[in-house]
Nucleic acid binder design. Structure first.
Length: 448
DNA sequence: TGAAATGTTGGGGCG
DNA sequence: ACGCCCCAACATTTC
């Protein structure tokens, strides 16, 4: 039997401009594309109609159809990756395995185990950068250490796009934004296997959900006006591409080329994504602890009933409640409102940022560990480049600034202004003063 | 990618 | 004309 190269899809669910797929298709063997529905992850999900599982399943079906049109097939397995790979080693004569790097703690451990397993059979796991523009060791300060503040990081990041140049060029010219046109190599390079069925959602104990997902494209107009409109949650001013970045259904290089050409503020958002990815990679303790250790001494109140009111969107602060209800209903929350709700949970209610982080992780379609963790630590004041702890958002002032006509509030909190709407669960002034006292005591010690 | 408290300034009303 | 007060507007400091 002829040897094959296996291309393993993970967070790069696309056929276009896919780095590892491009290299797999250039390797001189028929390519067998593979996806594994990972039981280590799926079995942990409480929600059996999880929209993200639906999204992946839909995407997998569509990838399989396109691969079939090109004379190949997508092999889809359901199980624990290490066990699946043991099966694959028995089923196929594998010359090599190609995949794009995944930087989350679980993924690193998984890939190390699989690489070791493959090595026992003399097979190399070839890995590639695809998910970010620059990896954690590519953007370092002059002293060779990782940046922990965004602004200098972004300056170096932008300069690194154009090595050896003093004036920035266009996206087309940057060697770091070049496309890997995998889509052009599909025909004639795929392994035509005996067809095996794709597991249904039901077979994996999930229910299908009615859901339409945001498009993979964004209008030039939106990107052009991004800096003016992005802070107003009632407007469609943000790209909503998060879910596609998370699962790799779009190419970060393609979006970065557009951003570079059209809007600096929008480009900065893509740089934030690389920034938090490198923070998680270089300081893995942030996944479970505060970046600044003194913040783990804060005496969180962690009131269970108050947490439930925050989750449900019945705090009595309309902008907070609107955000939580948008999240609960759609799996999305506008970024400005993510900051407001996160500030309210950590500062007004004094609930551990990890509780909020976990809730967002469960609900957000675009959940990305590095960005979500970075955002929460920023809001709580305990992270890199964080707001000092005494910056407490005033939810009323934020609503007046960013939703002055109450359009967003009324969309999600229709009973606002009636007697059915609850009174604020905490008084702003009192809660703010309590927050400052508790934070100060935790961070500086009792004498502070 | 804060907000509140406090300080400073200067115009205008008024005796 | 002058001093005094008030207060808005802005600046600075503090949390």
């Amino acid at each position: 039997m002829q040897k094959v190269v296996v291309f393993w899809f993970r967070r790069d669910l696309r056929l276009e401009d896919n780095t590892a797929l491009f290299h797999a298709l250039s390797a001189g063997y028929p390519v067998l594309p593979l996806f594994i529905f990972d039981r280590n992850i799926l079995d942990e999900l409480e929600d059996r109609s999880d929209l993200r599982v639906n999204f992946i399943h839909q995407t997998i079906l569509s990838l399989a159809a396109t691969l079939h049109e090109h004379g190949g097939q997508l092999l889809v397995k359901y199980g624990k990756p290490q066990e699946v790979w043991q099966e694959l080693l028995r089923e196929y004569p594998i010359a090599a395995v190609y995949t794009n790097r995944d930087y989350e703690p679980y993924a690193r451990q998984r890939d190390a185990a699989v690489a070791a397993l493959l090595a026992e059979s003399g097979i190399t796991l070839h890995t590639f950068k695809d998910h970010v523009i620059f990896e954690e060791q590519e953007i370092l300060s002059k002293s060779g250490t990782p940046y922990t503040v965004f602004t200098p990081y972004s300056r170096t990041w932008k300069a690194a796009l154009f090595p050896g140049q003093t004036t920035p060029g266009s996206g087309k010219d940057s060697p770091h934004l070049q496309a890997f046109p995998s889509e052009k190599l599909l025909t004639g390079n795929l392994f035509a296997a005996i067809s095996t069925p794709i597991p249904s959602l039901a077979a994996m104990n999930f229910e299908p959900a009615e859901m339409s997902f945001p498009p993979t494209t964004v209008s030039q107009e939106l990107i052009r006006h991004y800096d003016e409109t992005r802070n107003f949650p009632a407007q469609r001013g943000t790209s909503r591409l998060g879910i596609h970045f998370r699962f790799g259904t779009i190419s970060i290089r393609e979006k970065a080329r557009k951003a570079l050409a059209l809007n600096e503020t929008y480009l900065n958002e893509l740089i934030w994504r690389d920034f938090y990815a490198q923070i998680l990679a270089n300081f893995p303790h942030v996944a479970t602890q505060s970046f600044r250790p003194e913040y783990d001494r804060i005496a969180w109140r962690n009131d269970e009933a108050e947490f439930q009111r925050w989750c449900a969107g019945t705090t009595g602060y309309p902008i907070v409640d609107a955000g939580m209800r948008e999240l609960n209903t759609t799996g999305f929350m506008h970024n400005r409102v993510r900051m407001i709700t996160a500030s309210f949970l950590t500062k007004h209610l004094l609930i551990d940022w990890r509780w909020g982080e976990a809730y967002f992780a469960k609900k957000l379609l675009d959940f990305d560990l590095a960005s979500n963790n970075g955002g929460w630590q920023w809001a709580a004041g305990c992270g890199t480049d964080a707001a000092p702890y005494f910056r407490v958002f005033n939810p009323t002032a934020q609503q007046e600034k960013f939703d002055p006509e109450l359009k967003y509030v009324r969309r999600w909190v229709p009973e606002y202004g009636t007697t059915r709407y609850p009174r604020p669960m905490v008084d702003h002034k009192t809660a703010r003063e309590r927050c400052l006292a508790v934070y100060q005591k935790g961070i500086k010690g009792d004498e502070g």
